[in-house]
Nucleic acid binder design. Structure first.
Lengths: 190, 190
DNA sequence: AAATGTGAAGTTGTTCACAGCT
DNA sequence: AGCTGTGAACAACTTCACATTT
């Protein structure tokens, strides 16, 4: 999608699997194979229509409407994430932060309200929040996750370096910065 | 490793594949199969010796000595990353930040020096830097990556939402926060 | 009895090779 | 001529089933 958006910006109307694969960092056959799972979109001899393909994918991904997200744990990392502009372009808005110490002095001014934890349940219900970003210390991550699940959150983006245990209908995505570095480090031993 | 460390803290000396798999979020057979690629470490009827297994993995992962890393792009996200404590425990130290505007006012005080871009090549050479964290805007990510590669950096942890093109001996790991959210969002449509 | 280690079976994912459109 | 779409071949990964060991 991001690659297609960039092509659109350049007013390129048609793209071959070869070209698109190159910029997306995958192999052409892979790309074609994957696309066929959703139907036929290309024109043989020509390639894919950028706008059409883009439309298809966004339909497939579901409602592209702005989705509200909350962030729990407004510490170092949380503050950076809550101020991060990159989410909005993709249809997500962090509407509020929650923290045990909502009044803690944060150097960056954050436009979203930072609320105490006990306001979380009502907020989630009232704003029909379905996803949360979890950037609390490891020691309390499971506990906070339990609260989120109990309030009806269905997806958690977990930045804490532990595996959190949730009912199977709840989806967790882990982002572990140390693991990413370790990974790199392992593969660059020469 | 992280799970084993936690078990060690609790002074648990022996663990079954079943238990370890549970806390690591994988399946027991998977875990056993994977471990056998490095040899036999378990005791049938008993399980794995936590210390021994831990030792084996750290040997396998290579030198656990502190590895110096630089961070390029000390903006919102970069500032959070450079102040993030989680890396040190895993053997990485961000030793310096680089930015086009090194003097830009940053609200958080950062203990590492923030240097101008033109100091980067010498710094990398002098400190034998092999890995870099790239948290610059998408528009300049490729350009900065080129500089890093030219200076001899072998691994890049890329936070910008574009695919960067590097020689194949250079390893890139991508972390894309918006993609993670999208992913979640896709799987929680009910 | 409890748990590992592992060949075999099963499943999923990737690439090839090329027929078939435009 | 160029490029897609796709069955078939291939490769990688996961799980099963159970012999084996403590």
């Amino acid at each position: 999608m991001r690659c297609l958006a960039r092509l659109k910006d350049k007013e390129i109307q048609t793209v071959s699997s070869e070209t698109l694969a190159k910029v997306a960092g995958v192999k052409p056959t892979q790309l074609r194979k994957d696309l066929t799972y959703f139907g036929q979109f290309g024109t043989r001899g020509l390639g894919y229509d950028v706008a059409e393909l883009s439309k298809m994918i966004s339909d497939e991904l579901g409602t592209t409407s702005l989705q509200p997200v909350i962030l729990v744990g407004v510490g170092h990392l949380g503050t950076a994430l809550i101020s991060y502009r990159g989410f909005e372009k993709e249809g997500f808005e962090i509407v509020a932060g929650f923290d045990l110490e909502p009044e803690r002095r944060r150097d960056k001014q954050v436009k979203q309200p930072i609320l105490p934890m006990d306001r979380l349940p009502d907020f989630v219900r009232d704003h029909k929040i379905r996803m949360a970003i979890l950037s609390v210390p490891a020691a309390v991550a499971q506990e906070v996750a339990n609260v989120l699940v109990r309030c009806g959150v269905m997806g958690i983006l977990n930045f804490s370096p532990i595996v959190i245990d949730v009912p199977e209908e709840v989806m967790v995505n882990n982002v572990n910065l140390a693991i990413e570095l370790e990974n790199l480090s392992y593969f660059i031993q020469d």
